[in-house]
Simulated scan of single mutants.
Amino acid sequence: MAAYVRKKVFVSSLMFFVMIGSLNAQVADIKAICGKAKNPSFCSSYMKSNPKTSGADLRTLANITFGSAQTSAKGALAKIQSLVKTETNPTLKKGYTSCVEQYKNSISNLNDAKQNLASGDGPGLNIKVSAAMEGSSTCQDNLANVKADPSTVKNSGDFQNICGIVLVISNMM
């Protein structure tokens, strides 16, 4: 009987602290975030397309967009790696090979940024995500003067836009 009472008190206390903690978390102002984003229309579409963003606090929104940035970078890397394998034009193959290295660097920077995100270190997160964006930009620059697969440009643009949202959020943390 005493164990039952202790368990009930523990559960009640836990629920109390969870409720108090959730009162301190304010809903993120998505309109303000997207207004400061590199591409406001992309940001708005992105936020509307993900039901998890509705009603999310700033930290949750940072985790959601950061996860999307990681997914985007990994998807772009996989696509470019497949293009390297099938490309016969030496100039394009060289450009794609360079992009593979750039995206590997981007993913490495994002992996480093996880610690900043977990600790709520907005400036540190900003620095690491900015560094990750460099890889994508360099890839785009390397492919600018050749007839690259259009999906590489779209993937790179999406990655840049998602990272841009993370940067805005990191400045608000």
Rank of each mutant, 00 (worst) to 15 (best):
L125F: 11
D57V: 06
A69F: 03
V129N: 08
A56M: 11
K93F: 13
S49F: 06
L110W: 02
F66N: 07
K85D: 03
C99E: 01
C99F: 01
D149L: 12
T91A: 14
A78N: 01
T88Q: 10
K52P: 12
N116I: 01
G157H: 05
I127C: 00
E134F: 06
N116Y: 04
R59W: 02
G95K: 00
A78H: 01
Q115R: 12
N126H: 08
L61A: 03
S119L: 05
S119R: 06
S45I: 09
D141E: 04
V84Q: 03
F66A: 10
K94W: 01
T138W: 01
S136E: 11
G55Q: 06
E134G: 13
S130D: 14
L61K: 03
T97F: 02
D121F: 03
P150L: 01
L143E: 06
N155F: 12
T138V: 15
S119P: 00
A56Y: 07
L110N: 07
R59G: 11
S106F: 02
V129R: 08
D57K: 02
A69G: 05
D158M: 06
T138F: 04
L77R: 02
S130R: 10
S108T: 15
N126G: 05
T138R: 09
S45G: 15
V100P: 07
D57Y: 01
I107A: 07
Y46F: 14
Y103A: 01
S45H: 06
M133N: 14
G120S: 10
G120K: 10
G122Y: 03
T60D: 09
P51H: 07
N105T: 04
S119E: 05
L61F: 01
K48V: 13
K74F: 00
Q102A: 12
A62K: 09
N111C: 04
S119V: 08
D112H: 11
K48R: 13
K128Q: 14
S98R: 00
G157L: 09
M133C: 11
T71H: 05
S49G: 15
A131P: 06
Q81T: 12
P90G: 10
Q102M: 06
M47N: 09
K74Q: 10
V153H: 05
S151A: 13
K154V: 15
C139S: 01
N111D: 14
L92W: 05
G75Y: 00
D158Q: 10
D141K: 07
Y103M: 07
K48C: 03
K52S: 15
T91I: 14
L125T: 13
A131W: 03
L58G: 02
Q140L: 15
A131L: 13
I107H: 04
T53D: 10
G120H: 08
S68V: 08
N111Y: 02
N63L: 04
A131D: 13
T65S: 15
A76E: 11
A69Y: 02
P51I: 11
T60Q: 12
T53K: 07
R59P: 03
N63P: 00
L77P: 09
C99P: 00
V129I: 14
S98H: 01
L92M: 10
K93Y: 12
A62D: 09
K94V: 08
A62F: 07
L125Y: 06
G135H: 00
K128C: 05
D121I: 09
T88D: 11
T71W: 01
N126V: 03
N111T: 14
